[in-house]
Simulated scan of single mutants.
Amino acid sequence: MITTHGLTRRFGRTLAVDGVDLDVRAGDRYGLLGPNGSGKTTLVRMLLSLVYATAGTIEIMGKPVPRKAHEVLPLIGAMVESPGAYGHLSGRTNLSIFDAAGPGGGRRTRKARIDEALERVGLSGIDGRPVKTYSLGMRQRLGLAGALLRSPTLLILDEPTNGLDPRGIREIRDLMTELNAAGTTVFLSSHLLGEVELFCTRVGVMDRGRLVIQDDLDTLRAPTGRILVDTPDAERAHALLDGRVESRVGDRLVVRHADAAALNATLVGGDIRVAGIAPQQRTLEEVVLEATTSSADRVDAT
């Protein structure tokens, strides 16, 4: 769906994106993570031909971009950074202008498509108020409505839940899941690890312009070779498993063991009550922190 080779972008002496080989497959729910200033937004803008690459190639749906962008863009719904709008006009009027200006829009179906998009993002009840009176969350929903106007094959979103409250975040996540189940490939950049972990099936991590990780989420969160054991008999369990227990906090033990079922049998055989037992997995936060070097918005004394 999206393939890049050696994709690079310089702004003067600043290397914003450094030789990125992106691989987004049809049907993916792909999350691009990275600290502020890591190059995520510049990469997204290059995919949409809003910024041209200094070097490297981009293919979207098998077409070279930007050379064939006019064939690809009508199939893409996108929202980059803060959604733009004419503040003195209503949300519906903004969407009508956006639809008329873009490729692939049809005038006959415009009103129906705008109504449907607004309903899907939770704005079906908006009145004629100008966009400048909208909250940040409403502006974000309006930007998403614009991305959905033409039933996109590919959805490219930059920080889609920015400004939304927890319920709004859940609604947008459910909407993206619904769209993906219907065949839309979703590519989103975000710094919200929890949202990516809940929604995405495949993850890329940017750091200082480079793509340092790209893999399926299940692979990145593979078992660590340790078992988490919850037991009210923690002290006795610790004694029974002496040498294998790496840590204990309250009733929870972290045990060095490869087989949860075999460990459970050992504990039960030793008359130890087991309230819960499961393989320990790495969190996405641990994966990202191991792969990235620093936060770009820190300013430390030298």
Results as ranks from 00 to 15, higher is better:
Asp242Ala: 14
Gly243Arg: 11
Gly243Gln: 06
Arg244Asp: 09
Val245Ser: 05
Glu246Cys: 05
Glu246Tyr: 03
Glu246Pro: 00
Glu246Ser: 04
Arg248Val: 04
Val249Glu: 07
Gly250Asn: 02
Gly250Pro: 00
Gly250Thr: 02
Asp251Leu: 02
Asp251Trp: 01
Asp251Pro: 04
Asp251Gln: 08
Arg252Asp: 13
Arg252Pro: 10
Arg252Gln: 15
Val255Ile: 14
Val255Asn: 01
Val255Ala: 10
Arg256Ala: 15
Arg256Cys: 07
His257Phe: 08
His257Leu: 00
His257Ile: 02
Ala258His: 04
Ala258Arg: 12
Asp259Asn: 14
Asp259Arg: 09
Ala260Ile: 00
Ala260Leu: 01
Ala261Leu: 13
Ala261Lys: 13
Ala261Tyr: 11
Ala261Thr: 15
Ala262Gln: 13
Leu263Met: 11
Asn264Ala: 11
Leu267Thr: 11
Val268Leu: 14
Gly269Asn: 00
Gly270Val: 10
Gly270Gln: 03
Gly270Cys: 04
Asp271Asn: 14
Ile272Asn: 00
Ile272Leu: 08
Ile272His: 06
Arg273Cys: 05
Arg273Ile: 09
Val274Gln: 10
Val274Ile: 15
Ala275Glu: 12
Ala275Gly: 04
Ala275Val: 05
Ile277Tyr: 14
Ile277Arg: 11
Ala278Gln: 15
Ala278Tyr: 12
Pro279Ser: 13
Pro279Cys: 12
Pro279Asn: 12
Gln280Lys: 09
Arg282Ala: 12
Arg282Pro: 05
Thr283Asp: 04
Leu284Tyr: 09
Glu285Gln: 13
Glu286Asp: 11
Val287Asp: 02
Val287His: 09
Val288Phe: 15
Val288Pro: 07
Val288Cys: 06
Leu289Phe: 14
Leu289Met: 15
Leu289Tyr: 11
Ala291Cys: 11
Ala291Ser: 13
Ala291Trp: 06
Thr292Cys: 08
Thr292Leu: 07
Thr293Lys: 05
Ser294Phe: 07
Ser295Pro: 02
Ala296His: 12
Ala296Glu: 09
Ala296Ile: 01
Asp297Glu: 13
Arg298Gln: 12
Arg298Pro: 03
Val299Ser: 09
Asp300Glu: 15
Asp300Ala: 14
Ala301Val: 15
Thr302Asp: 13
Thr302Leu: 10
